[in-house]
């Protein structure tokens, strides 16, 4: 109050607000907070009660069969799990896809539709970093979605005394594959949701890209294999995230059957396509958020 200039006519009065001179958190903290908030929101945590229904309903549906399998294995003392870890994810792909389609708009559409994105970007946080953190949130949420039943199966296997080193190898393979799949699916659904801001259209778009496309690819693979056109069957697998996943799992001996075994140079092609797809989606997301951020 004391150092208010008296002589000049125009004066900004000191109302007692104090400047913040303390330590400021850096970009890393902002990014981490954004990531954690995004992860929580993907499961409806920290949001209304209604928004928790969908993610947890889907999670429950994907865990239930695993519980049944574990129960059966433990009670009957089977010598192996009736389904491999990687294949369990494959068999429940509908639920994983639906989870991604339903929750991607939560992370990618809302800020753009309500233009709250400009508030985020008004902080020392760049558009690319924002896009990256959102993508990571969704990817980890998806990974978690797949990992929970996988871990349950593993616990079941351990309880019934199956060979530990065997199971651990299978588990680690499955987890690695699931990570790749999560990054892939998060990229695809995120990109779709950030372009199509109406929730309904984003969901239908994601369902098209994940479920319908996989249906088409599977149909082509099956028919090609039936016609003994093995190369066509394997090549068709390059065109959907789920067939990439099953193809790589098959090549890596993770316990997933495909119509035609994926081997040789095809493995490299599958891995390359998967990585390129992740990179492409990321670039698309960054470009999209840079564009809306600059408006």
């Amino acid at each position: 109050m004391s150092d208010v200039p008296q002589s000049r006519p125009g004066v900004i009065h000191d109302l007692g607000y104090r400047r913040y001179d303390g330590l400021r958190e850096g970009t890393a903290t902002i990014a981490r907070t954004l990531f954690i908030t995004g992860l929580r929101h993907a499961y409806g945590l920290g949001r209304s009660g209604k928004s928790k229904v969908m993610p947890f309903l889907l999670l429950a549906m994907s865990v239930l069969p695993a519980l049944i399998v574990v129960g059966v294995v433990v009670l009957t003392g089977m010598s192996s799990l009736p389904i491999s870890y990687a294949d369990y994810t494959n068999q429940t792909q509908l639920l994983v896809s639906l989870f991604a389609a339903a929750q991607a708009p939560v992370l990618f559409s809302r800020d753009l539709r309500h233009r709250s994105i400009v508030l985020y970007l008004a902080r020392p946080l760049s558009a690319p970093l924002f896009a990256l953190m959102r993508w990571l949130s969704l990817a980890v949420a998806l990974w978690f979605f797949m990992a929970v039943p996988t871990l349950l199966l593993f616990v079941g296997a351990m309880l019934s005394g199956l060979d530990k080193s065997d199971q651990v190898t299978q588990l680690l393979k499955a987890v690695a594959l699931q990570t790749l799949l999560a990054l892939l699916v998060a990229g695809i659904t995120g990109l779709i949701s950030s372009v199509s801001l109406r929730r309904g259209f984003a969901v239908v778009g994601s369902v098209m890209a994940l479920i319908v496309l996989t249906g088409v690819v599977t149909a082509i693979q099956a028919i090609a294999a039936d016609q003994d056109a093995d190369a066509v069957s394997v090549a068709a697998g390059l065109f959907s995230p789920w067939s990439l996943y099953t193809g790589l799992a098959n090549a890596w001996d993770a316990g997933v059957e495909t119509f035609v075994p994926v081997d040789g140079a095809w493995v490299l092609a599958y891995a390359l396509v998967a990585l390129l797809l992740v990179a492409g989606c990321l670039l698309g997301l960054v470009a999209r958020f840079q564009k809306v951020g600059s408006r």
């Binding site: 969908m54 389609a101 969901v203």
Partner: peptide, 11 residues
């Protein structure tokens, strides 16, 4: 509605 309808059809 979209998700609810999809769940009816798909699941």
């Amino acid at each position: 509605a979209v998700i609810a309808s999809l769940m009816f059809v798909l699941i």
